[in-house]
């Protein structure tokens, strides 16, 4: 499939390249500032493709800030600055040749509070295609069905695609937002506490979904729930006060953490 963004260096198909898969996203010596306040300190992190990586840590530890840097969403805030690099497929996302709009189209994002547009369910899912100028009715319909099936929402809403998305339940809305985020077939899916506003049943559905979606997408999830991180993630990064304390296989982090801070946090001694 030729992507309209194929001209971008990092959208070239590296999929079979094992090395590139292992070093899919590389964050090196990354510092981030809100005005003069430094919120991320010298972060070094290598995230593999098609796995679930969880960012955990107490509130204000910088995990969401790092997540929002991966698709340069933080640039929308006034007075932010950074140093160091983040590379995807070995290409720096801060490279002047990278168009931020194109970058965000390759990296889907799901937010803490589900935020469907006040439009119909159909229009929500096709929005990322519409902004790329895709008009073909059959293509849009195909995409809607495929995306909604991928998030197990198709059977629930297929008869009311023309109705407002705001009439859905909280869990359905969040699944719709995931469907919207994957409609354009991005390579990476960023999730910023996607279940924090949901009840346990809706949470379980989303978690199932995440495990399913990692076959196709590289998923990075920020979560406050350590149980969630241990249930769904392959790798876990623990942040504290803007620093990356420990990053390893999830199983290792939760059974034999090396750092004392990590152990204290996952055993609930603080945080």
């Amino acid at each position: 499939m030729t992507s309209p963004l194929a001209s971008l260096p990092f959208s070239e198909p590296f999929a079979d390249d094992v090395v590139c898969d292992q070093r899919f996203i590389e964050v090196s010596n990354f510092n981030f500032f809100y005005g003069k306040k430094q919120v991320l300190f010298d972060i070094n992190l290598t995230i593999p493709a098609r796995q679930v990586t969880a960012f955990i840590g107490p509130s204000g530890c910088g995990k969401s800030t790092l997540l929002r840097n991966l698709n340069r969403m933080n640039e929308l805030l006034p007075g932010v600055s950074h140093s160091g690099t983040i590379a995807i497929h070995g290409i720096s996302i801060f490279d002047p040749s990278i168009e931020v709009i194109a970058l965000r189209r390759r990296i889907g994002m799901v937010f803490q509070k589900s935020n469907p547009f006040p439009k119909s369910i159909f229009e929500n899912v096709v929005f990322p295609l519409r902004i790329m100028g895709k008009q073909s009715r059959s293509f849009l319909e195909e995409t809607v069905e495929r995306s909604l099936r991928a998030v197990a929402l198709w059977d629930e809403v297929k008869d009311r695609l023309k109705e407002s998305a705001l009439g859905l339940s909280g869990g359905q809305m969040q699944r719709l937002c995931i469907a919207r985020a994957i409609a354009n077939q991005p390579e990476v899916l960023l999730m910023d506490e996607p279940c924090s506003a949901l009840d346990p049943i809706a949470t379980a559905k989303i978690e199932e979904l995440i495990v399913e979606l990692k076959k196709e997408f590289t998923i990075i999830i920020v979560t406050h729930s350590m149980q969630q991180a241990s249930r769904i993630s392959d790798l876990t990064a623990f942040f504290y006060l803007g620093k990356l304390i420990e990053f390893d296989q999830t199983q290792r982090i939760f059974t034999a953490p090396i750092q004392k801070k990590t152990e204290d946090y996952i055993t609930g001694r603080f945080g």
């Binding site: 965000r104 889907g108 994002m109 937010f111 935020n115 006040p118 929005f127 790329m132 919207r180």
Partner: peptide, 15 residues
Amino acid sequence: VSSSYRDASYGLGAT
């Protein structure tokens, strides 16, 4: 207008 709409739109790569 809720900023969550703007976040969603920019997050999907809208100009």
